[in-house]
Amino acid sequence: MAELFQTRNTGHTIGRVIVYGLLVLVCFYYLMPLFVMVTTSLKSLDEIRAGNLLSLPQDPNLDAWGKAWSSACTGVQCEGLAGFFWNSVSFVVPAVLISTLIGAVNGYVLTMWRFRGSDLLFGLLMIGCFIPFQVVLLPMARTLGAMGIANSTAGLVFVHVVYGLAFTTLFFRNYYVTIPDELVKAAKIDGAGFWLIFRRIILPLSAPIIVVSIIWQFTQVWNDFLFGVVFSSGERQPITVALNNLVNTSTGVKEYNVDMAAAIIAALPTLFVYVVAGKYFVRGLTAGAVKG
């Protein structure tokens, strides 16, 4: 009996060691580039040329960050990323909020107010999740032109809302499937209508899936490059496009520290959103995963 426990314990320990070993390795693998980026952005150019890629900065300073933010050249102008950062914010925030809200309403209708053909409609909407960006570029350009919002912030918002709808609808629909129908029936008998039920009964239950939708959409829209480069130009370009221009500007010395700082600045908002709301993300993604 004692022996039995012994072997079981040993096996258990070995298993743990392997699991944690792998986790540490994977963490290391993912954190290494970040480490290099952060340290490099804090070094001076001389130090970078002289030193080891992995060494810690001898005299850490934020000069490169300042330059990336306000005076690095992105093509012809040299005003840093600041303007482009706010460009991104100005279309990402409305795009995320609008696509999340419409997704919520879609999901609500597709689960609680089913109609003839609603399952078919949902199936068709799902196809939207599998259409590559490149496919919609030309038709979208024509559409934006026809709507008179080509080359504007509104146009970029529109593109991202349309493209994101398939995903947000999927999230909300699968989440709402787990909410019992009887809630809506009870509210109908209480005298509530479509919007009142949505606002007072359904939305207050939706916090986890709203967080999922916001994180997902924010990451997608903020990190998007292709739509940004195609549907905007000059001063209105998003930060991803500006970052590309900054790194690829070929005049003068290659400033790795500025490039690294700029890349981190461009990535910070998505990191921030994930850190703040991340624990809801996993919870919300798995909720509703069973029923479908």
Binding site: K185, K188, R200, P204
Partner: peptide, 21 residues
């Protein structure tokens, strides 16, 4: 008539209480 105009009230098997209230 819609449910709200029928002057009825209903008690459900799952109770269907509004969870957020």
């Amino acid at each position: 008539l819609s449910p709200k105009d029928r002057d009825i009230a209903m008690v459900f098997q799952s109770y269907a209480l509004y969870p957020s209230m």
